[in-house]
Computed example of a mutant assay.
Amino acid sequence: MDRAAPEPADRSIVIPAESLGDLIAALKSEGYQVWGAQERDGALGLAPLAGAADLPRGRVEAAQPGTVTLVDGPRAAFFDHTLPMQGLKRVVYPAQERLCAATDAMTLEEDPVEAPPLAVIGVRPCDLAALNTLTAVFEAGPFVDGRFRQRREALFLVAVNCMRPATTCFCASMNTGPRAEAGFDLVLDEIIDADRHDFIVTAGSPRGHAVLDALSGENAAEADLETARAGSRACAEAQSRGMPERIEVLLKESYEHPHWSEVAERCLSCANCTLVCPTCFCSTVEDRSSLDGAQAERWRRWDSCFGLDFSYLHGGAVRTETASRYRQWMTHKLSHWHDQFGMSGCVGCGRCIGWCPVGIDITAEARVLEASEQAA
């Protein structure tokens, strides 16, 4: 499926906010499960939606380094919140899954992939970029991960262009948002003013056009589209964080910088940043056997470069200090990822900032390195 090759002319319609449930119903009638952000235990997570009422309407994140809480926002918007705790990664690349099993009859059976048609509504542009990044990792090389591909191809993506940023967002500096240009089946712009509360719905793929045709709405006027574009521009301008433009080169020149030891004094090596990151893909494989020896299983689960055993080679671990592990994560994410995959491994979502228990801010650490270079 090629979402980057839509029908000859993308079509946009305007629907009233109360018709958002009609979109969810149309997706279900096409055979999709529908997931979206829901509030659980004071945080946002992706979960099945019964209807539009399940969305965290009117709620926004109060995000700071080390803290993400939900509070009431100033208006009854469906999508003034920004990001669930984890993005699409957990959908297309589960935290753990059984790959195969062997029995005492010495037969090996690969587990089938569970990839039901799934529509996710409310996907942000940075998470679309993250899915594109993971696709480059798992599908663009000589060895294609078929399990990932099947799950990705089963997705129907309903994106939402951002009209307000969380304080931890920095997608504008990474050129991944706040407006989606491709990679979606449908994209929504939520327009609210004194006289209206509407959605502009735009199709971005043949499947998206088919769902759009099932909705009742007037074609969007150019004034509507410009209102939406202006909202995204204002969102970009409101972002207070950003990544230095030279970070790719700067990190390669900062291998021995003393700041890594300063970060290590704060870092817990807990791996929270890699778990919530929408592009971190490291994994390990475990072989498990039943107590009676009748069956052996092979599982794949997420791993993290912050673990001491992650860099274990014969005789011991290579990165024994927290400083070297943090340096590895940040340098790979922002620098060597370009060498491997032709793009950055960071999409500017800011999750690592908010979910770090001690509030380490990747953009602030990058600025320290930049300031040192400028002072030299």
Rank of each mutant, 00 (worst) to 15 (best):
P56E: 07
G58A: 04
V60A: 03
V60Q: 05
A63L: 02
A63V: 00
P65F: 06
P65S: 04
P65V: 00
G66F: 03
T67M: 13
T67C: 12
T67Y: 11
V68W: 05
V71W: 05
V71F: 07
D72L: 08
G73T: 00
P74T: 05
A76P: 06
A76V: 02
A76L: 10
A76C: 01
A76I: 01
F78I: 00
D80W: 13
D80C: 08
H81K: 06
T82E: 11
T82H: 12
L83K: 10
P84K: 02
M85S: 12
M85Q: 15
M85C: 09
L88H: 09
L88W: 05
K89M: 08
K89S: 04
R90Y: 10
V92K: 01
Y93S: 09
Y93P: 03
P94I: 03
A95D: 14
Q96H: 14
E97I: 05
R98T: 08
R98L: 11
L99H: 07
T103S: 15
A105W: 07
M106Y: 09
M106T: 06
T107L: 10
L108S: 00
E109K: 08
E109R: 10
E110F: 11
E110I: 02
D111V: 08
D111N: 10
P112N: 00
V113L: 00
E114V: 10
A115N: 04
V120K: 03
I121Q: 07
G122N: 01
R124L: 04
P125M: 04
P125I: 03
P125Q: 02
P125G: 02
C126D: 00
A129I: 05
A129T: 03
A130N: 06
A130W: 06
L131G: 06
N132C: 12
T133E: 05
T133R: 06
T133G: 05
L134M: 13
V137P: 01
F138V: 11
A140E: 14
G141H: 12
F143V: 15
D145Q: 10
G146T: 15
R147N: 12
R149N: 09
R149K: 15
Q150M: 14
R151Q: 05
R151H: 05
R152V: 12
E153I: 08
E153F: 06
E153W: 07
